[in-house]
């Protein structure tokens, strides 16, 4: 640094040097810190001391200083929505969360709407446009977080894996009550494997008969043979699918008479041969441990489940 950049004060030697000298002539001034900076520093010291008193701070023995700050929260009964207990606890983020949750639960508008959902029957909800608007907006979030991973964002499902919730076909029943039951308890789809029971040509015949049920195939001799297996003791398909092939909601068995295919992707196959082959190979394998709907009762509250059931029901127009 050349001399002419130093100010007058330094030139006249008012400011002291640190007394060190490097390389013979290199010295360091001890200019005072700027006032504003110094006061900010003192401010942070005062702030930290106040902080120790308000928030949890120093470890002491096997515990710690919990501070004078407190968080008030109310514990609400999940079933009735009423206040069970009021708590006043030293400040911490977990208590703060409970405060936020109880504030949210006490958010008058939301609370009022949730209480209405809880009190109303599904039919009453469906008739109330304001309530349905609430169900659609809350249901969309719940569905996105919990159901969309399998059933798709719009509920369209994946053919062969996860049922489409937007059509009018319901394996386990499409009433709001049944949907509610399905979400609460989960479901486990099952169909025995017929590969060992039926011969390949018998499987073919059954497939042909199944295709006639939905008018995919025309009546034929093969279909008649298939019918005998379907309706008789050999195949026994009618136990679950019903004599008319319309399925039983209590068994979760598919309706074979409509054009909606939950597992075998019949519409995607071009020729009758391919359609038959797909069905025959499916009947041979059956369903075991591959179509499982998890239970949600430990994850979602009964009100959330009811709301979701109404939401899912309206996706399809419902049954």
């Amino acid at each position: 640094m050349s001399d002419n950049t130093l100010n007058t004060k330094q030139k006249t030697g008012v400011v002291q040097t640190t007394g060190h000298s490097w390389d013979g002539d290199l010295q360091e001034y001890t200019n005072p810190l700027p006032r504003w900076w110094l006061w900010c520093f003192y401010g942070t010291v005062v702030f930290s001391i106040l902080y120790w008193f308000i928030y949890p701070s120093w470890p002491v023995g096997k515990g710690w200083l919990k501070g004078y700050g407190t968080v008030d929260y109310t514990i609400t009964d999940k079933a009735t929505g009423g206040t069970v207990e009021k708590k006043d606890q030293h400040w911490n983020t977990r208590a703060l969360l409970l405060e936020h949750l109880s504030e949210a639960a006490n958010d008058p508008k939301r609370k009022e709407m949730l209480a209405k959902v809880q009190a109303a029957t599904p039919e009453q909800i469906a008739k109330d446009p304001q309530l349905m608007e609430f169900v659609r907006s809350v249901g969309k979030g719940l569905f996105g977080d919990n159901c969309a991973a399998c059933h798709g964002q719009g509920g369209q499902g994946v053919v062969g894996l996860y049922p489409n919730l937007t059509d009018n076909d319901w394996l386990w029943g499409g009433s709001t009550d049944k949907i509610q039951e399905t979400i609460t308890l989960g479901r486990k789809g099952f169909m025995p494997a017929f590969g060992a029971v039926l011969k390949p040509d018998q499987l073919d015949d059954v497939a042909e008969y199944v295709l006639t049920l939905s008018n995919e195939a025309k009546p034929s001799e093969a279909a008649d043979r298939g019918k005998a297996i379907f309706q008789g003791q050999v195949g026994g398909c009618y136990y679950c699918h019903g004599a008319d092939g319309k399925g039983l909601a209590s068994m979760g068995s598919a309706n074979l008479t409509d054009k909606i295919w939950a597992i075998v992707d019949v519409p995607a196959q071009k020729t009758l041969q391919d359609k038959k082959a797909q069905i025959a190979s499916f009947v041979a394998k059956g369903v075991n441990n591959t179509r499982i709907m998890p239970t949600w009762q430990n994850r979602l509250s009964p009100t959330d489940i009811k709301l979701l059931a109404v939401y899912v029901h309206q996706l399809s127009g419902g049954k």
Binding site: N146, A148, A149, C150, G152, Q153, V158, L161, Y162, N289, T290, R291, I292, M293, P294, T295, N298, R299
Partner: peptide
């Protein structure tokens, strides 16, 4: 844990976009 079925986990790990397009 328990949120999805085993089959979903297998399918999703194998080919995530087959169940979650985005």
């Amino acid at each position: 844990g328990g949120k999805y079925s085993n089959q979903w986990q297998v399918q999703h790990l194998n080919a995530p976009r087959s169940v979650v397009p985005q």
